[in-house]
């Protein structure tokens, strides 16, 4: 009963967003239903496309899972994008410097990515707890720094032999790429990682003392402190875990998708993850399907450009509309429940 009620805003929002999207597509001069079919076909039409969609799903899911941890703890960790970039930088450093075959280097690159993301998030955390800087501003600022560091490394110390170009570093040697299957870009390791992370975050929030403390600090830090929760340590751990998962997303992007460091390595996934988590109302079990839906929209809307000559950013517009409607309808519900229209 309770769960069904909760699902209502999501259903209404999806319907409303669909109606508005169809209207927008019509305005743009495209046949709306054909366009929607094209998006779906572009995302799951054949094995290769499904592989692309899944590989787009993995980093988005990882970053979103990390965000759930920080959001539950009441931390507006808006700096995920920077933490994803930091993870990609860390993984790139490992892939370039650590000698050996994939069995050694790939786990090391993923681990360094996790650490780099965690450190980047912890910086925002320490700025908050010790510097009195709101994590929204700290996170945004650190995001710009991470972006600049990535660009500097690409055109500076890590530039390709002979040319300094923002198109990226030299690709990694092939043995440190995440292994793929079936001639597609699908990496089972990456998908397994994402599934494992979803499960771990679920178990953490549901069954551990740390998860309970996160919720307590998130809902009321003053009470949590009186109840014996070490609030600062809990906040910092939440940042470290959330940033670590965002860093893992960056490491997967570098070693599994781009196979090098590019300036736009995060590609807005950090911000997209915020939308995923808002849509999921901070509940981890909803993150996987919603991230999949977003991945389908992102990958599939490339077809709109190829086939209908529409700008592929229409996919982003659809995602934005959807989130706006969910927040709007959730807000209306809260207003009416209190009896003040």
């Amino acid at each position: 009963m309770k769960r069904a009620l909760r699902a209502v805003p999501a259903v209404w929002s999806v319907l409303a967003a669909l109606v508005v999207s169809v209207g927008l597509l019509a305005l743009a001069g495209a046949p709306p239903f054909e366009a929607l079919v094209l998006v779906l076909d572009g995302a799951v039409g054949d094995g290769g496309r499904m592989a692309d969609t899944l590989m787009s799903w993995v980093p988005l899911t990882l970053a979103s899972a990390g965000l759930v941890v920080t959001f539950v703890a009441g931390l507006w960790n808006i700096g995920v994008e920077g933490q994803v970039i930091a993870g990609a930088i860390g993984a790139t450093w490992a892939a370039r410097t650590i000698p050996g075959d994939g069995l050694v280097v790939i786990p090391a690159a993923l681990a360094v990515g996790v650490v780099a993301g965690a450190v980047w998030a912890l910086a925002a955390g320490v700025l908050k707890t010790r510097g009195g800087v709101n994590e929204i501003f700290g996170g945004l600022g650190l995001g710009f720094v991470a972006q600049s560091v990535a660009t500097y490394l690409i055109i500076g110390p890590w530039k390709r032999a002979g040319i300094a170009s923002t198109s990226g570093t030299e690709p990694f040697r092939e043995e440190v790429w995440l292994p793929t299957v079936g001639g597609t870009r699908l990496s089972p390791v990456a998908v397994l990682l994402a599934v494992a992370v979803i499960f771990l975050v679920w178990a953490l929030l549901r069954g551990t003392r740390f998860g309970l403390r996160l919720k307590a600090v998130g809902a009321n830090p003053a009470s949590a402190r009186l109840l014996g929760v070490p609030t600062e340590a809990t906040v910092l751990r939440a940042f470290a875990l959330g940033g670590g998962l965002a860093g893992l997303a960056g490491a997967v992007l570098a070693t599994g998708i781009q196979h090098k460091l590019v300036p736009a390595i995060a590609g807005g996934r950090g911000f997209l993850a915020i939308l995923v988590v808002l849509l999921a109302a901070y509940r981890i079990v909803w993150v996987a399907p919603i991230a999949l839906f977003f991945a389908i929209l992102s990958v599939g809307s490339a077809q709109l450009q190829l086939r209908l000559d529409l700008d592929s950013s229409i996919g982003g517009v659809l995602q934005g509309i959807l989130v706006l409607f969910v927040i709007l309808i959730g807000g209306w519900q809260a207003l009416y429940r209190r009896g003040e229209p």
């Binding site: 309970l212 307590a216 809902a219 009321n220 109840l227």
Partner: peptide, 17 residues
């Protein structure tokens, strides 16, 4: 509710903390 209890947490969760 401001500095004793945590809104949203249940009785069981409070006693556990």
């Amino acid at each position: 509710l401001e500095e004793g209890l945590v809104p949203g947490l249940t009785i069981a969760e409070h006693l556990t903390l």
